[in-house]
Amino acid sequence: MVLIGVALIIIGFAIRLNPLVVVTVSGLVTGLIAGLPIVDIITQFGEAFTTNRYMSILLVTLPVIGLLERSGLQNQAGHLVSKIKAATAGRIITIYLLCREVGAALGLLSIGGHPQTVRPLLAPMAEGAAKAKYGEVPEEDREEIRAHAAAADNIGLFFGEDIFVAVGAILLMKGFFDQNGIEADPISMALWGIPTAIFAFIVHSIRLYLLDKKLDRKLGSKAKKDVIR
């Protein structure tokens, strides 16, 4: 019965209703089916919303990013990159992926992030590289490049962080095994994350290489090959 809430989510997302509405309705319905009084459900909403306020932390980054964008930060990022001949959208994102993953593996989780790094720096750099290489880039390809920039941040973070011993995930698993009377060692757990971390990097760099190839095929004919202002 409680799976009705899950079904509502899947259907709601599938028919593209507004996610806020879908999530709220599913929460209310699930709570009611589970026999919670409506007052309790609403209280639960308020409580969880308040405990998770940290998720809105991106608000404090907005004034910085906004001011810098107003002064041409994105233009400067693109401008710098356009001077490097070897730069392509895929290569720039690959370098970022590597830094993000290694950084996360060393416990430097906060060196990246979508509001503070991807939007003001990485995305304009990748777009700038494409623009320098091909001239005007159509909006749909620019969106594809930006989506790849956002994805690289996630992939680098996720598959890097579990190699760091003191990260939440490792501690959570250690705690779980302890509770169940099973011996586990955080360092060894973290080490066994390395093969997957390397594999994820290789797979995703290949995909970024393919992104460059795709852009070459599509926009290459229009490329102003030697003209780099």
Binding site: G5, I9, L20, S26, T30, Q44, A48, F49, M55
Partner: peptide
């Protein structure tokens, strides 16, 4: 934040 809420209700 809303999804985190849903998580607790689930």
């Amino acid at each position: 934040q809303l999804l985190a809420t849903l998580g607790t209700i689930f």
